[in-house]
Amino acid sequence: MLALQGDFREHIDALRAIGATASEVRTAEQLAVVDALILPGGESTTIARLLLAFELMEPLRARLRAGMPAWGTCAGAILLARRVPGLDRPPIGVLDVTVDRNAFGRQLDSFEAELAVAGMAGGPLRAVFIRAPVIREPGPGVTVLARLDDGRIVACREGRVLATSFHPELTDDRRMHEAFVALARDAVAARGSAA
């Protein structure tokens, strides 16, 4: 769990509630030993600066390119994208999409909505959008997982990298976390059988 800034505690609580092992990552040494990484909600400008300041950007990019599973929520999704208009630091850039920051406006425009996610059993989930970004221009390798009623993309996946504009960690619905932990376990198993 990337723990430079943001709501990482909520993610850790959610992961532990479903029986996963979760630890905080603030240094390159801590990054080197995790099997998968969640990038939490927070302020993307703050987290981008801290990634650079603590020399985490390059090791993180290298691990993601080598196939480490990752999931970015809100600010985390922004950081994973290849194209982020207006972000004055280069994002990590492993997800072939454009992400517009604060796409809905200011805090007054933050909202909750029922959202159907592709491949998720049990009906729509309650999605919380806080100064949320929107995903557009998905590349050919990107699968769109969820759209708002007006068609805007708010969840997608490319390989083992998952991005959501909303915050499953702020609700009691653990299905997104379960899906990510399953993805991470598959990746670990694949690595084990390849070795």
Partner: peptide, 12 residues
């Protein structure tokens, strides 16, 4: 949504 923004500011 109102309490949620503060969650995003944590650690900051």
């Amino acid at each position: 949504v109102k309490a949620g923004l503060a969650q995003m500011l944590k650690g900051g």
